[in-house]
């Protein structure tokens, strides 16, 4: 299936477009910033609708995280209930079943640090290699990566599961971490970014000085690539943080669950004989799950936005 996508037309297209590009690795000033543009109230109002659409479900989540189960069932969704139970809910969420939520949080962090970190490292190395070296098999790499992305991951769960269980990897953190080490999007982003962010002349100069390729990479290129790397890292973090299906299949013991799988297990324990619904904890847990990732985005937005801009030059 990988041979279907050949890169030639793409390359041709990009070449045809080439004249339009101007030294893209030099950061462009935001075009409109320099000019005085009249602010539009109408446009602001229209965009406010976009914001409301985006934010209302999150507000719903925050509001309902303040209710106990009884209030959840009896009060209006977008306003507070009779009691303010947020802190009680948070305490309950963190202590339910001997604090398993905290353990899931720790697992998620582990998967994010090792998985997303590893994915970023691999994608950076490979994207750089593809951008800066012309080696045998380079086209095949492109074709294989693009082709494999198209195969539904969910449906590959069974083969992956059977393979991993042969290797004794199921029900271990590796079963979650190994597949998340691959980020085709990250590879693509670094690839496009590195083509111009790391000038070939600098590399040639370093080679003249007798520096090894890896030394050059770590001392010179890595720094030049850093906005792109931060972007890839953030997307990999989101992907790992949100990873649900694979851990669901691979892990049978809650001790290794990430937050997403744990939350859905809490949600489904409202079912059947001996049902124990804990909707208030599910909602509070969902809120606690998205808070760190939202905070990470807010703090790092300067970096990932510039990285993304640079990456998109090549699109």
């Amino acid at each position: 299936m990988s041979a279907i996508a050949t890169p030639e037309p793409a390359a041709g297209a990009a070449q045809a477009r080439k004249p339009r590009k101007r030294v893209p690795y030099v950061r462009q000033q935001k075009p409109t910033e320099g000019r005085r543009v009249k602010k539009s109230i109408l446009l602001t109002i229209v965009m406010a609708i976009f914001v409301i659409y985006s934010v209302v479900p999150l507000i719903w989540l925050i509001v309902n995280a303040t209710k106990d189960q009884g209030d959840l069932f009896s009060s209006f969704g977008l306003w507070f209930g009779s009691d303010f139970n947020l802190f009680q809910n948070i305490a309950d969420t963190l202590t339910y079943r001997n604090g398993i939520f905290v353990q899931w949080f720790g697992n998620t962090l582990l998967y994010v640090v090792v998985g997303a970190g590893g994915a970023t490292l691999l994608a950076t190395l490979a994207g750089y290699g593809l951008a800066k070296f012309n080696f045998p098999g380079r086209r095949a790499v492109f074709a294989v990566v693009l082709g494999a992305v198209a195969v539904p991951g969910t449906a590959l769960a069974v083969p992956t599961f059977l393979m991993f269980s042969q290797l004794g990897l199921t029900n271990t953190p590796w079963a979650v971490i190994l597949p998340s080490l691959i980020s085709p999007f990250g590879l693509y982003l670094i690839w496009t970014y590195a083509v111009d962010a790391v000038p070939t002349e600098i590399l040639e100069a370093a080679r003249m000085d007798g520096a090894s390729e890896f030394r050059t990479f770590f001392t010179i290129s890595l720094r030049l690539l850093s906005p792109g790397i931060v972007t890839v890292l953030l997307f990999a973090v989101v992907a790992t943080w949100n990873n649900y299906f694979l851990p669901l299949i691979m892990l049978s013991e809650p001790t290794w669950y990430p937050l997403t799988v744990g939350l859905s297990q809490w949600s489904s324990q409202a079912t059947g004989v001996a049902a124990q619904p804990i909707y208030n904890l599910v909602i509070t847990g969902a809120l606690l799950t998205i808070v760190p990732i939202v905070v990470a985005f807010l703090f790092l937005q300067r970096y990932w936005q510039s990285g993304l801009s640079a990456g998109s030059v090549k699109q």
Binding site: F161, L162, I249, P254, Q265, S268
Partner: peptide
Amino acid sequence: AGTNTDEYTKLQNAITAGSG
């Protein structure tokens, strides 16, 4: 390992895999 069918899925997986 999960509530009813969730557990059976995992049980069946482990049986299919021959371990776990």
